[in-house]
C-alpha cells in the first residue's frame, strides 16, 4: 500500500509539474540556414523547412519532425557525457536507462540505443539491420540501421549516425513507420545528418 501510494504520489507530482509548464510553441527551422542543436555546438543545415518540437526528450537531446514525431522523428543527441543516459529517465529506480560510459566503443552505440528504446518505448522487438563505419562530424563514426515495433504495434525503421568526440557522444537518429513515412522522409533526414558539423570536430 505504502509503495503504491508512493508511486501514485510520484506520478501525481510528475504529471502536475508537466501540466503546469506552459505549452511552448514549436520552432521553424528554415531551409539552408544553419542551426545549432540539442544545446550543443553541433550544427546542421537543413535542405528543407523542419519543425523543432518544443518538448525535448532530454537535457542534451532535441527532436525535429515534418508531420509529427509519430510519423517522422529526427532526434539529435548533442554531447552526451560519460555516465549519462541518452534521454531523460522516466524513473531512475524502476526504469533505469543504460548509460553512455567512458569505456563505450563506437560499435557499442547501436546497443546503447536499443537498450534505451526497449525501456523508454516499451518495445518487445528491436533488430539491428546493418552497421558500418562512416565519417561523422569530421571523425570516425558509425552508421547503423534498425527496425522495431513499439507498443502501438507499428513497425518503424531507423537510421543513425554517431561519433564520440572529446569523450562525448554525438548522434543523429531518424525513426519513421516503415509504411510510407520512412521512404517519404529519409532523404531530408539524411541531408541533415550529412550537413552536421562540430567546431573542432575533426581535430580529435
Amino acid at each position: 500500500m505504502t509503495h503504491r501510494m508512493f508511486r501514485t504520489l510520484t506520478g501525481a507530482v510528475a504529471a502536475m509539474a508537466l501540466l503546469a509548464t506552459p505549452a511552448l510553441a514549436h520552432r521553424l527551422r528554415t531551409a539552408k540556414e544553419a542551426a545549432t542543436v540539442a544545446g550543443s555546438d553541433m550544427s546542421v543545415t537543413p535542405d528543407r523547412d523542419w519543425n523543432r518540437l518544443s518538448m525535448a526528450p532530454g537535457k542534451h537531446a532535441e527532436t525535429w519532425t515534418l508531420d509529427g514525431e509519430q510519423l517522422n522523428d529526427v532526434t539529435f543527441y548533442g554531447g552526451i557525457a560519460p555516465d549519462e543516459p541518452l534521454v531523460r529517465e522516466r524513473s531512475k529506480k524502476r526504469d533505469p536507462l543504460p548509460k553512455f560510459l567512458q569505456s563505450t566503443l563506437l560499435v557499442e552505440i547501436p546497443e546503447l540505443l536499443e537498450g534505451t528504446y526497449r525501456t523508454q518505448k516499451n518495445i518487445a522487438s528491436f533488430e539491428l539491420l546493418s552497421t558500418e563505419p562512416t565519417n561523422f562530424l569530421g571523425n570516425k563514426g558509425v552508421r547503423f540501421t534498425y527496425r522495431y515495433t513499439d507498443d502501438d504495434a507499428l513497425t518503424r525503421n531507423g537510421e543513425a549516425r554517431a561519433a564520440i568526440v572529446g569523450g562525448k557522444l554525438y548522434m543523429i537518429t531518424f525513426d519513421a513507420p516503415r509504411l510510407y513515412y520512412f521512404d517519404k522522409s529519409i532523404e531530408p533526414a539524411r541531408a541533415l545528418m550529412t550537413s552536421a558539423t562540430l567546431p573542432g570536430g575533426g581535430a580529435h
Partner: peptide
C-alpha cells in the same frame, strides 16, 4: 492490415495533436 490500422491510428494522433489542436500546430 494490422500494421495499416496502427499507421492510421498514428496519423490520426498526429492530426489531433498538430492540426486539430490549433495552439500546437507545426510551423511548416
Amino acid at each position: 492490415l494490422a500494421e495499416h490500422m496502427a499507421l492510421f491510428a498514428a496519423v490520426s494522433d498526429a492530426v489531433i495533436e498538430y492540426q486539430f489542436f490549433r495552439g500546437n500546430r507545426l510551423p511548416t
